[in-house]
Design a protein around this nucleic acid. Structure first.
Length: 252
DNA sequence: AAATCTGCCAACCGCATGTTG
DNA sequence: ACAACATGCGGTTGGCAGATT
């Protein structure tokens, strides 16, 4: 026979995590580490399944998380990596210490996809779509204006479309500069082959990181964190959580 | 001021893969 | 070798906040 089930899901809490739950989970992990996620909620006194605890820790509570919006440089690197790796968010996230796959995935769907569309690029294949036709369609909205007002509106639309085109060309140029030296076409071909065969050649260990970050650097930073777990009990975020919890307790 | 729309993000769900007995 | 389970991953969704009508 195999192992025991992960969780029975009956009577388990779902939805947003409270400060108190965060505090319990973080306190438990900092004191005991992670050996088995199934046991974590039970031992930490949480009415959550292990999966939910794991997700909360990885995406929100981990002390090595980098907060704040992604920089333009990070965004550019995500585009490069996506061209190369596709939707393998965890692989992409591994190039950004302190960033989570969920964060990068969300950022991709909310920001980067739009940016690529403006560039006239297909976010999936990273290839050009017929941008010029789109602009011409926009100009053709009202081909024969009758009144002066309509003529003015038409001119406005034309200018808007032309400005959009100029902006797009600039952005496209940037994109070419960004990806040109990286031979996206070659990557795409490699990736098509590799994704079919699940080749390990794209793993962090084997492929050099274009930004010069290595998996050993990441491991090193994690090791530093592990080494300093004791002092973590006084780190800022944790203190803040503790204060918030005390505040809530005082309210009750 | 209220209603509606839009963007964002945390969290969930289900599947794939790895691990254990 | 196989079944049962744990873990990791990517897709999707629900709900909140701010913007717009």
């Amino acid at each position: 026979m195999g192992r025991q089930p992960c969780c029975d899901k009956v009577g388990l809490k779902r939805g947003p995590w409270t400060i108190e739950e965060d505090h319990k989970l973080m306190n438990f992990i900092l004191n005991n580490g992670i050996h088995c996620w199934r046991m974590v909620p039970k031992l930490a006194g949480l009415l959550r399944c292990g999966k939910s605890c794991r997700l909360r820790w990885i995406n929100y509570l981990r002390p090595d998380l980098k907060r704040g919006v992604l920089s333009e440089a990070e965004e550019d690197q995500i585009i490069q990596l996506h061209a190369r790796l596709g939707n393998r968010w965890s692989k992409i996230a591994s190039h950004f210490p302190g960033r989570t796959d969920n964060e990068i995935k969300n950022h991709w769907h909310t920001r980067i996809k739009k940016r690529l569309k403006i560039l006239g690029l297909d976010p999936v294949t990273h290839t050009l779509v017929k941008q010029k036709e789109k602009v011409e369609e926009k100009i053709e909205i009202n081909p024969e204006p009758n009144s002066l007002k309509e003529q003015g509106e038409t001119r406005e639309k034309e200018n808007e479309a032309k400005m959009g085109l100029d902006e797009t060309i600039d952005l496209l140029h940037d994109y070419e500069e960004l990806c040109g030296s990286l031979d996206v076409g070659l990557w795409l071909n490699q990736e098509t082959t590799n994704s079919n065969s699940q080749s390990p050649s794209l793993s962090l260990k084997d492929s050099p990181n274009p930004m010069g970050e290595s998996s050993s650097m990441k491991e090193d930073s994690i090791q530093k964190w592990v080494d300093s777990v004791d002092s973590m009990l006084s780190w800022d975020g944790f203190n803040q959580l503790e204060q918030e919890l005390l505040f809530l307790e005082n309210l009750q």
